[in-house]
Simulated assay, not measured.
Amino acid sequence: MTARTTTQRPGTPVWRDFWTTDPDGTAAFFRALFAREVEPGLIAVDIPAGDPDLGGYTTAQIDGRHVFGIGPAMPCGVDVSAVFLATDDADGTHAKALELGATEEIAPTTVPDHGRFSAVVDPAGALVAFYESHGMLGYGAVDELGFPCWQDLLTPDVAAAEAFYGELFGFTFDHQMAPYSVAQLGQDGIFGIGPLEAGEEALWVQYTLVPQLDPVLAKAKELGASQVGEVMELGFGRSAHLTTPAGAAFGLFEGSEEMREQAEQG
Rank of each mutant, 00 (worst) to 15 (best):
W15E: 01
E104G: 13
G146L: 12
S226G: 09
E105N: 07
F171K: 01
A86M: 12
S181P: 00
M1R: 08
T12R: 10
A28M: 10
D143F: 04
R36F: 00
D88G: 10
F68P: 02
T6D: 08
D63Y: 15
L242R: 02
L196D: 07
E230G: 04
V216I: 03
E201D: 06
D143L: 06
I47T: 04
A44T: 00
G71Y: 11
T20M: 13
T172Y: 01
A248N: 09
D89E: 14
D17V: 01
Y139G: 02
I43N: 10
F250K: 08
A35K: 09
Q8D: 01
M136S: 15
G56E: 10
Q265C: 02
G25K: 10
E233C: 04
G266F: 06
V111M: 13
G50L: 05
P195N: 11
D89G: 15
P23L: 15
L100C: 08
G25E: 05
Q206T: 08
D152K: 07
G55V: 08
H114T: 06
Q187I: 06
D79Y: 15
V158S: 03
A220Q: 09
K96M: 10
D157E: 08
H94S: 10
L153S: 04
H175V: 03
D79G: 09
A225P: 06
V142Q: 09
L145S: 03
D46H: 13
G64W: 13
Y165A: 00
A60Y: 14
A159T: 08
H66Q: 09
Q262H: 02
E37C: 03
T172S: 13
L54G: 10
V216N: 02
G255H: 09
T93A: 14
E37S: 14
A86E: 03
A28G: 10
G199R: 15
D46N: 08
R31K: 08
R65H: 12
D113M: 12
W204M: 00
E104A: 15
E200P: 01
A102H: 05
L196F: 03
L153Q: 05
E39D: 15
L137F: 14
Y207L: 08
T243P: 04
G186V: 07
Q187A: 14
